[in-house]
Each structure stands twice: as C-alpha cells, then as structure tokens.
Design a protein around this nucleic acid. Structure first.
Lengths: 312, 312
DNA sequence: CTGAAAGCGCTTACAG
DNA sequence: CTGAAAGCGCTTACAG
C-alpha cells in the first residue's frame, strides 16, 4: 500500500526547465516571478499532476494550518452542528479541519487527542466533557485548545465556550410552571456536570416556588410515579421518555408534558414535536474558532433560549 | 498562533548524551540498541515531553499511516456507524483515521477530498454517492479508494462496497404485500441512484403482482392520496411521513403502514417504531478497510435484511 | 552497540 | 527576475 510516487517540485522544475526554488515561488504566487514564467510553471505543474505535499510544507513552516476537532461521539446532531460552524470559520481563514471522535469514552478520547497531537495541529477544539483534564492540559501546552462543553476538570490553560445551562434549565422549568404544572420532575441522562447543573437549577426553581423536586434516571421510573410534567436533561432522553410514555398509553402533552434540551433535529421529527432549550450552536463554534485564532485563553458563556413546540 | 517549539529528537539526544540516530532507533524499538541505553533514552524523552513528529516521519517513510474517510454529511447515523467500523479495523492495523465531510454538496465534497489528497493519505474511504467521478478517479490514482455507496459514476480504478438495494426493497414491499396491502406507494427522498434502484425494485414487485405503482416526493402528496402503505426510501423520509400522517390524524400502522430503509437509531426512537431494512454497516466498514489494505480494486455487494417493528 | 551523512519535499534567506 | 544552499524533524543505510 505504498503511495504512488506523486510528482514533486523537482519534477516540475525539470519539466519546466527552471530551478526548484523558482517553482516553489511560482506556486505560492510570490511576486518576483515574472507573469510569463509563473504561468508556464503552473501549466507544467498542472500537466504532470503536481500537488504540493502538505507535510513537507508544514515541516518547514512549523505549522500545519490544520485545526483538530475532537467530538465526544459522531452522530450526535448537537455536536455535529457545532463542527460545521467551526469549519465555516476555519475555511474562511484558510485553515483545514480534521475531525476525530471518541465514542463517549475518556480513554478513547485521550488516545484520539494524543494522535492529533502527534500531527502537530495548530489548535484543538474539544466538543466533549469527557476528556481527562491532564490530557487537555497537555494539548493546550502544545497548541491553543478550547473546550465546547462543561467538564468537571478544566485546566487554566484551556479556553471554554459553553451555554448557560442553569439559565436554560430555569427557562424550561418556568415554562412548565407557567402552564400550571406543579408535579414537575427531572429526567437525568447521565452523570455529567452539564446534567448536574441543569438538575440543580431545576431544583432551585422548584424550591423557590415551594414545590418538591424529583430526579429520575430512566423513563420507567418516571412512569411509575406519573408526574404531570418532566424536564429531561437532553432531547434524546426526552424522546425516549416520549416513546415509553406513548407505549404506556399516555397522551402528550395532556397526560404528561415534556421539555428537552439542545433543540436537535430529533425535536421536530417526533410527535408531538418537542419543546426544548436551544443552544446557539453556530455562535458557539464561531466563538471557539475566534479564541483559537487569537491564541489567548478565554471563557465564554452564551445564552440559550426556549423553543416552544407541542410537547409542553 | 505559532506552535510552541516541541522538543525534537536532537533535544532528546543532547539531554541523553547520544546521537540523534540512536534516539530514533531507541524510540522505534529497533533492536540493536542495548536495553539499558534504550531505557535511559526513553526516560529522557518522556521527561522533556518529546513527541515524534508525524509529518517528518511520513515524509521520509513515503506514507502517512493515515486513512481519510469522507462522509456525505456528519450527523447521519447510517454513515457514522460505518465510520466507526472503519476505525476499528484501522486501529487494529495500526493506522489512524481522519474524517472529513461535505454537507451533501458535490462541490464541497470535491474540495474536501482534494484537501485530503494534499495530506498524502494512504487510502480513502468515501461514504457518499455525491462525489464527482473525476475526483474519485484522481484520488484512486493517488491511493487506494473505496466508495461505500452507489454513485452514478464509479471509475474503474475505485473499489466499492454497497448493499443490495434491489433485494432490500423487494423484502420491504413483499412484507407489505404479505400483510395484505395492495395500495402501496413509494416515497422518494432524493434523486440519488440508490433511491432510484429502490424505486425500480418496488415497481417490479408491484408489477409482478399486477398492482399499480405510485412514486411520491414528499409526505404531503402521499397524504393527499391515502395509500394503505408506503415504502420510504430511507428512515428519515419514513419518519417525516410518520409525523405528517400523525398530524393529519392518522393512526399507524392501521390507517397507514410505513417501511423505511437503513435501520438508523431514529427507527426505534419514534412511535410506532419503524419497520425498516437494515444494512450490515459493521461488515461494510470492515470490508472496505480490507480492500483498502489489500491495495486491489474490488466490488462487493452485501445483503440487507428486514427488521419488523410496529409501523408495518 | 553507536555515530556521521544523506535525503524525504518543501521554503527561506542570500547571492547574483 | 533566477539559482545554489541550508534546514524543517525524522529515518535509513553505511561505517566503525
């Protein structure tokens, strides 16, 4: 599986009858090469199928012009939308993006990040809360690193862009209260810090209204207790609950009102469509890239907003 | 945003008091380096945070040990499951994977493939039917290339792994016929070859049973005609139809039976759960990697299977 | 067991 | 406007 020998700069030089330095200059549009010469060189290069070797170029440049994006998992639309926003900005700035992912597993994530580090990328965007703190720290020592998530451990040298989970959760619960619900529970999707913050904000609001809180970890427990409404820590959990509740013969939102979090595609695919809290994903991706390109360390919090649909 | 100067092999050599060649040998576990020396070198390397430069290594090796995976779009679970299977095999073989995607747009896909080509990757797996034939051809000239999809144009030098869409479609339609449906329509999700093949197989089966065929392009047209059952060209289209039908007050599967294709996560998230045709994604990813590593050009067709759930 | 030298494909001063 | 030389970080023969 050896790569077919691609033509190099010296092949072009030979074919065009010039020195290889001149080819290099012509290809990079360096002025100081006559119009005619440049055109001839470019033509020859094209003819023999020359394609500059990114690795060699990076080696001398000391930078790769490539950003590494590490995802918690592929196939999570909340994450992948963020990736697209990152890429938009990167491409505008003439940088490439390589994507990797770790299947929600800290060990795999660490491994993938290390592989990216070996590539000597110019920056890292981590769209996951599960990368070990020491790995983040090591990555940030090598190149600007920003996390788009809210991990338990966030070393001082790494930047962060996250949404205000407490504010989002409050909007969700207050919406439910405004609709007259009193028996409102919380469905936790995981033990992540994000879930915890959302749960605590939920409890605070309930407390403030003199109402009792209930946190469940799976749809079955929810159905066993039959609250009048549930705030789920993300859309996926909300949709699972929606399904289980439907299976149990409940009608949403009358028998059970449900609010999710993230506003993924899923939310408008199911019936009733999900009322959910939307994170400004495009903005988050954009901010992350801005921080990366600035080279400094920043912590940014953006505001989520409630999207009311049929489920609550 | 210049990368902080990472320690190189010569830094290690200096710190350990040996030549840089020796460091190189020690690091690659080349025998011919005394146990004691190797350990000392490795220790020093670890101490000063040495990390080998993938680019430099590739430059001299003439290969990158990296496979490029190009996706039609991120966030399509059918695609991303395939990617995971590819990665499993790649990691087993000591190769890395870089992922890129093109948002379903041929121009963007072509651009991304070109960027990957500049990285001099050792092979390409294209999980998309929308990459222009000439781009595939150029990629395959450079390194082994296999498409996991069924594009209209497939150059002779590129390999392919795909499922038997006609067989899958036949299973779907025959299932519907077995359930007693006669007025069965087809909901097309796009103008891709895959959709066309599925549509034609559907028509053939209907023909064979002396029944009329109807192809629609959106849920609204389906509902205007009220067939008794619909075979949708993929899960997403099926779920959209499910939603629209529910909005129109229909009960599935009694008022309308629906069958999808792909068996994505979506299929078991909605209610009723979707009856759908499953592609052996793990096998497809594995086969693609095997072909890549063998270096030859092959065309492989795998068998899909019907998964019966609640929607039909 | 260990070191000096050449070279991977490119760019960057430095002379002409 | 153009060429010869050095060097990016590494590996690979080739001598000792």
């Amino acid at each position: 599986m050896r790569v077919k020998n691609s033509p190099t700069i010296v092949d072009v030089a030979r074919a065009a009858g010039v020195s290889k330095s001149l080819v290099s200059l012509a290809i990079r549009n360096d002025r100081g090469v006559s119009e005619a010469t440049r055109n001839r060189i470019l033509e020859v290069a094209d003819e023999i199928g020359y394609r500059s070797n990114h690795w060699a170029r990076s080696l001398v440049a000391g930078r790769t012009n490539l950003i590494g994006v590490l995802l918690n998992e592929l196939g999570n639309p909340h994450n992948t939308d963020i990736v697209e926003a990152i890429e938009d900005v990167a491409v505008e700035d003439g940088m490439g993006v390589v994507v990797s992912h770790g299947r929600r597993d800290p060990g795999t994530l660490a491994e993938r990040l290390q592989a990216m580090r070996r590539l000597g990328l110019d920056g890292f965007v981590i769209v996951s809360a599960h990368v070990p703190g020491k790995e983040l720290e090591a990555a940030a020592r090598q190149a600007p690193t920003v996390v788009i998530a809210n991990p338990y451990e966030l070393p001082d040298n790494v930047s962060q862009v996250r949404n205000d989970d407490a504010a989002g959760a409050r909007q969700a619960v207050e919406h439910l209260l405004a609709r007259g619900h009193k028996g409102i529970g919380f469905l936790a999707a995981s033990e992540s810090r994000t879930t915890r913050v959302r749960a605590e904000a939920y409890e605070d609001v309930m407390d403030a209204h003199g109402l009792a809180s209930h946190v469940w970890w799976n749809p079955a427990s929810v159905l066993a207790e039959r609250p009048s409404a549930v705030f789920a820590s993300n859309d996926r959990a909300a949709v699972r609950l929606l399904g289980s509740a439907a299976d149990a013969g409940l009608r949403m939102p009358d028998d059970l009102a449900i609010v999710g979090y993230d506003d993924t595609e899923l939310a408008s695919l199911v019936r009733p469509k999900l009322t959910t809290v939307a994170q400004p994903r495009a903005e988050m991706g954009r901010r992350a890239m801005e921080i990366l390109l600035s080279g400094g360390v920043e912590r940014v919090v953006v505001e989520p907003s409630l999207v009311v649909r049929g489920s609550a």
